[in-house]
Amino acid sequence: MKISMLAMVLILIWLALMSVAIATGASSVLIQEMLLTGSTSHQIVAEIRLPRALLASLLGAGLALAGASIQGVFRNPLADPALIGISGGAALFAAGYLLISSQPDAAMLGLSGSAMLGGLLATGLVLLVGGRQSDIATLLLAGIAINAICLAGVGLLSFLAPEQRLRSVSFWALGSFNHVGWSDVLMALIIIPVMLRLLRLAAVLDVLTLGDAEAGHLGINAKRKRLEVIVWAALITGVSVSLVGIIAFVGLIVPHWVRMTIGAKHVLVLPFSMLGGALLLLAADWFSRWLLAPLELPVGIVTTLLGAPIFVILVARWSRGVWL
């Protein structure tokens, strides 16, 4: 299939999924009433389902893009923001901010900012502990350790915090779109310029996969570019975690599928990861609402149930020296 055809098909599937996500759910809506201002159907769609579906798409695109970029700079196809500690650090700092902030609900910028800072610090710690950034096993092990510490920290904060002051541990660890509205979508818009910047770094990411020395011989300061990509990936992850908690594996599964389908060039991998990420998280959120309706599963359970087995297969293949 041609690349442009694949893009068209993915966009059409996304539009179809958007329609399904908007039209279906715990309460039934009447399609003919959806456009009638003041009707219940209009309210459900405009105030709840549309912002939720848009946010799932935007954050899915962002997380998959962050995953693909992080994999590129670490030369590590198994890296994912949630596996290498970025998400855990973001959750810990976001929870800490909620606890000490005097107006926890009003200060979304502060919440996202502290989540980003936490993500960056956790990544720095992972690199410090893991040492060589391209060594798959040490990076993942260091990530697991830092993640465990961060989530234990989130648990401790939740335990110590007064009732209603902090969201639950399961919100941070498993993610949920349950409470989102237009203000969350507006906040998430700040990742768009970051995503555009990462897209512009596609050719640099190609060169970085050759290693630092080779990148230097082709005119690229690998350390500086790696840091830049980590900062942008941490920002996207931080915003996402602060709004909907940790959603793991989107950044791992989607870029992997893209590389298997259309190859490794980042000029294609990055935009197709965004499309695939939007699709996956939108579908996962709809599935999490549909499966036990009217109850809702945290969306992170769905992505983890899907992603973890794939991750196990990838690790098994990697141990045999097979990358794809």
Partner: peptide
């Protein structure tokens, strides 16, 4: 200055012509 160093340890499925084209990055 161009340099052929030790063979890099690649982990992504770049096509042959894509790897060669990286030499024109500068």
């Amino acid at each position: 200055i161009a340099m052929l160093g030790q063979k890099p340890d690649l982990r992504f499925p770049f096509k042959v012509e894509e790897i060669v084209a990286l030499g024109r990055y500068p």
